[in-house]
Amino acid sequence: MTAMRLTVNGVQREIDVDPRTLLVHAIREQVGLTGTHVGCLTGDCGACTVVLDGRTAKSCSVLALSADGSAVDTVESLADGDDLHPVQQAFWDEFAFQCGFCLPGMLLTAKELLESTPDPDDAQVLAALNGNLCRCTGYNTIVSAVRKASGCATTCVKESPCRKS
């Protein structure tokens, strides 16, 4: 076991890991934040997404020790107490999740996109979401949530009588 340091959601943590320990397991099991999920451990699904030193990464494909001394922000960092981040709010309003297992990747990549590209077009939204699998929603509502969070008035899902305006 090797000792290492992580700043998780602004809080400094010291943890012990094995050289093979994945960052996702360190966060979930050593740090104890379970909002970051494990869906595949192959880098394909995106459920393990975190923000590592300011950029999104799939924490199943990062060795914990590679992140020694790094700052990690997880999905738990998005809301401020009971105040949801606008991206979270939009996802809720737009029914952009069902089981919610994919949310870490969806929310954090959406946030990263909107920070660099405040008014993305559809192609940019789709490219940003490309690394996240969702098996429940069929993605349409996720795309409209990202666009809604960007403040874009037009939405992608036409003719849906149920949608809140």
Binding site: G43, G46, L52, K58, N130, G131
Partner: peptide, 28 residues
Amino acid sequence: YTDLITSDVPLLSTVASGITGGPQIRNR
């Protein structure tokens, strides 16, 4: 790949943006 996208390395700068796996993969 993310570094390459904003670089002026010929060809690879455009190829990098087409790498799948999302920004999370391109960032690493």
